[in-house]
C-alpha cells in the first residue's frame, strides 16, 4: 500500500507575547492507505496541533516547519490559497466539538450539499481519483455538478445521513444544526466526510463529546470508511482505550514529541515508555478488581518552560542523571515498535 500521509520533522511554533513556543517538536509519522493510526496524549501534548498542521488549518499565530506530505504533496510549503485544492476530497477533518462545528445559519442539507459539490469539483480536476479504489454505489459525481447554490439536498446527502444512522434523514436534512442533538450533529459531520470520500481523514477527538453508545456507533462508522474507501485515518484522542479499539498503530505524544510508536497490540500489552505505562495504568479497570488506579504524578510541562533532557524526566520514577542531561530519540526495539527512552 502507498503512503497517504507522511509527516516528517514537523515542528509547530506558536507566537506568544514575548517569544515563540514550540507545541510540536520534530514529529515523524506515516499513515498508509486504509490504515487507522491513533495519536494519544494529554491536552497540551501537541496532538491537536499535529492534526491542524496536516490540514493546514493552524490558527494565525502558529507556524509549521518540516514536511507534511498528503498524497505526495507538501502542505507546509503550499501557499495558503491553494490549500483548498487538497482539502475536501484529498483530506478532511472531523472536529471535537459537534455543537459548534456546523454553521448555525445554514440548513444541514445545504452544508452536506457543499461537500457533494466540493467532491465533484475535485473529481473534475482529476485530482483524487484512484481507480484502484472502488467507489461504491451512486451516480458518477462528475455527471451531476450542481450549478451555483446547491438547492434541494442531493440524493447522496440523504443517503449519507441514512448511512450514519440518523432516523428520518429527510427531516434531519431540512433542519438547522441547533435543532439536532450533539450526537446527531457529530453524525452529520461524519456524513459530510462520507460524502467527500477523502483519501486522508483527520479525526480530532470525534467521540469525546458523545455518550458511550453513540461513541461505539461513530467509531464503527469511521472504521467502515477506512475499510470500504481505503481512507487513511489519523485518530487523535486523549483516551488510549478508544484508540485501541480502532487503530492499527498508536503514537503516544508527550510535550510535542512522539515518545512511543507501534502496533496497537504491542503498545497496549507491552508498553515500553514509562509515560505509556502510566497512561495504561491510569485506566479505570474496576470490574477486573485488584489494583488501584495509578496516577502519573505531576502535570504535563508548560511548553514555554520545558525541562532539559527527556521532557518526561520530572514525572518519571525511573529518571536517571542521563535523562536530565540528554535528549531522547526514537529507537526501534521490537518489530515496528519504537520508543524514545534512555531505559532501553
Amino acid at each position: 500500500m502507498t503512503d497517504a500521509l507522511k509527516v516528517s520533522g514537523l515542528w509547530v511554533d506558536y507566537r506568544t507575547k514575548s517569544a515563540w513556543a514550540s507545541a510540536v517538536r520534530g514529529v515523524d509519522l506515516t499513515v498508509r492507505e486504509g490504515e487507522v493510526v491513533g495519536v494519544v496524549g494529554e491536552s497540551g501534548s501537541g496532538k491537536s496541533s499535529v492534526a491542524l498542521a496536516i490540514m493546514k488549518l493552524l490558527p494565525a499565530n502558529a507556524k509549521a516547519r518540516g514536511r507534511v506530505e498528503v498524497l505526495g504533496k507538501d502542505m507546509v510549503g503550499l501557499p495558503g490559497k491553494d490549500a483548498h485544492r487538497y482539502r475536501g476530497s484529498g483530506m478532511t477533518m472531523i472536529f471535537q466539538e459537534p455543537m459548534t462545528s456546523l454553521n448555525p445559519v445554514m440548513r444541514v442539507s445545504e452544508q452536506l450539499s457543499e461537500a457533494v459539490v466540493s467532491r465533484a469539483e475535485h473529481y473534475k480536476l482529476e485530482m483524487f481519483r484512484y481507480d484502484s479504489v472502488a467507489v461504491p454505489g451512486g451516480p458518477d459525481p462528475r455527471l451531476s455538478i450542481p450549478q451555483g447554490r446547491p438547492a434541494p439536498p442531493p440524493k447522496e446527502a440523504i443517503e449519507a445521513l441514512h448511512q450514519v444512522r440518523i432516523g428520518d434523514p429527510e427531516r434531519a436534512a431540512a433542519k438547522y444544526p441547533h435543532e439536532l442533538s450533539g450526537g446527531e450533529r457529530q453524525r452529520v459531520m461524519i456524513a459530510m466526510s462520507f460524502l467527500l470520500r477523502p483519501r486522508v481523514l483527520v479525526a480530532d477527538e470525534p467521540t469525546t463529546a458523545l455518550d458511550v453508545t453513540t461513541q461505539a456507533q461513530v467509531l464503527s462508522l469511521l472504521l467502515g470508511l477506512s475499510r470500504d474507501e481505503g481512507t487513511a485515518i489519523i485518530f487523535v484522542s486523549h483516551d488510549i482505550l478508544v484508540v485501541g479499539q480502532v487503530a492499527q498503530r498508536v503514537a503516544v505524544m508527550y510535550a510535542g514529541e512522539i515518545v512511543e510508536l507501534g502496533p496497537t497490540e504491542a503498545v497496549l500489552k507491552n508498553p515500553l515508555h514509562p509515560y505509556t505505562r502510566g497512561l495504561i495504568a491510569s485506566i479505570p479497570s474496576g470490574f477486573k478488581g485488584g489494583k488501584r488506579i495509578e496516577q502519573i504524578p505531576g502535570a504535563p510541562p508548560d511548553i514555554m518552560r520545558l525541562p532539559s533532557g527527556c521532557k518526561f524526566n520530572p514525572r518519571c520514577k525511573f529518571a536517571m542523571d542521563r535523562c536530565r542531561a540528554e535528549e531522547t530519540a526514537l529507537k526501534e526495539l521490537e518489530d515496528d515498535h519504537f520508543v524514545a527512552c534512555h531505559l532501553y
Partner: peptide, 24 residues
C-alpha cells in the same frame, strides 16, 4: 469551528468567507 469545517470541506477561501463567515 464551523469556518474550520467549511475549510476542511475543501471550499475556496472566497466561498468560506462569502457563504459561511459573512452571513454570521
Amino acid at each position: 469551528d464551523y469556518v474550520r469545517t467549511a475549510r476542511a470541506k475543501g471550499l475556496r477561501e472566497n466561498a468560506v468567507i462569502l457563504r459561511h463567515a459573512l452571513r454570521n
